[in-house]
Design a protein around this nucleic acid. Structure first.
Lengths: 239, 239
DNA sequence: ATGTCAAGAATGATCGATCATTTTTTTATT
DNA sequence: AATAAAAAAATGATCGATCATTCTTGACAT
């Protein structure tokens, strides 16, 4: 109710696209990185002031978010940021395990030398990313490490990119984003666990070794471990 | 471009909900049953006349459909009914096989007596449904058999309903609908193949026998067979 | 004929006002 | 004080006008 997306009105994203699309992107990011808290009311008029725009673009953006599952909508009741729950976290984690299991096995089966190179590069870039933001600059507060998040997602998506199914790839992308929301809310971004770097490295090696069983197992354990961590943090303070 | 959803303006669905939601439902059905052809332009003004309403509700409905994947949208270019392709059909079929394989195995593992009864009933209702519409009544042309479609989906969804994953159930639902669009376009609704009734019956029996491997295999073959049929029909006339 | 470019038309996107519903506050009653 | 009904406020949904972009058309030059 009090958290608001950055007070940027019609800025970055606004170039080239429509207002509705720009706002959609901004709101989506705000939800994924926790700037907009679960269950926060998405008041159309308030948002239209914040974004210095009319009601229509806001409404269109909200409709997209609701269809996507990041917001909830009830006729004549308006929009709300989707709630989170441990049950949904479990469901999400299970789905990620299932989907990525298929994805990496298929990729190992079908992926060529180009795929190997791509996962190698993705892994390398992820390893190079600092886990926490530099805290430098003179502007606003310490931002969550966007670069790491991007590299992280790129790595996971590249792992399954050779599976041959656009549908599965897209689904995994959405699942990754939904899960990222939980990671953000548990403040696990970048500054993560014991050593995720090693986990990613191990998965990479298994994939390069074309050891499907090992890769799939490591990947599944990786998701499960992340989920457990999030659960531990979120499970305590009942938002 | 010429096919239009039934000229009903603000009718059935309009009760109780908002215009946007009612129109969303109508348009969605029109796309799924082929009334709106793939690639058909979804002109906002035309639609607003057809539905006797303003621009906003139409736009909201279209935004939802686009996010859902049933329509495509490009900024400043408007909306279009999503195109179909044999590639997408393959992708969709593969995804259905994967998802339902997991779903039915898990259901067989976790489902109790109540689940057995529910699939039995769903199967019975499906078997009872006439495969083609009665052609009776004095109104418009012979409608595709809506009742069968509903029972058909209910049967498949019930099969996986005990899998324990709301996410998987929802995903299968969306996949079913997307596939239904292909079935409709190939005019396979109700009046289907050699004998789908037997296929459904076999799957039911395997499920009741708790034979996961057999059930999963039959289910996969069922989807594959349907896909092949659709491919045969659509593959010829390149829409 | 073909290609280019400038109206003009069509369509998409946005705005602010208005209507409808829901929520909150106030008032009346026990 | 507690409850219920009524009024007021707030919010969601919709409308029609307007602005912006894209598409069409046709004059013109080559």
């Amino acid at each position: 109710m009090r958290n608001m997306p950055s007070q940027n009105a019609i800025k970055d994203s606004e170039l080239k696209t429509t207002r509705a699309s720009a706002i959609y992107v901004d709101l989506r990011n705000a939800i994924l990185n926790g700037t907009l808290s679960p269950e926060a009311k998405l008041n159309v008029r308030s948002l239209s002031e914040q974004f210095q725009t009319g009601l229509s673009p806001i409404r269109e953006a909200l409709n997209r978010l609701a269809t996507e599952g990041l917001a909830h909508h009830a006729d004549n009741k308006g929009f709300v940021v989707s709630p989170i729950s441990l049950d949904e976290l479990d469901d999400l984690t299970q789905a990620r395990c299932w989907m990525n299991d298929i994805g990496i096995r298929k990729s190992i089966e079908l992926g060529g030398a180009d795929w190997e190179e791509r996962i190698l590069i993705a892994s390398h870039r992820l390893a190079r990313c600092p886990r926490v933001s530099k805290e430098a600059g003179g502007s606003s507060a310490a931002q969550p490490d966007l670069a790491w998040d991007i590299a992280h997602k790129a790595f996971h998506q590249t792992l399954i990119s050779a599976c041959g199914s656009p549908w599965l790839i897209e689904t995994c992308s959405q699942l990754f984003d939904s899960a990222e929301r939980y990671r953000s809310l548990a403040s696990l971004t970048g500054t993560s666990r014991s050593d995720p770097r090693d986990e990613h490295q191990d998965i990479l090696n298994a994939a390069l070794d074309r050891d499907a069983d090992r890769a799939a197992t490591l990947l599944t354990e990786h998701f499960q471990r992340t989920s457990d961590l999030v659960r531990r943090v979120i499970g305590h303070d009942p938002t």
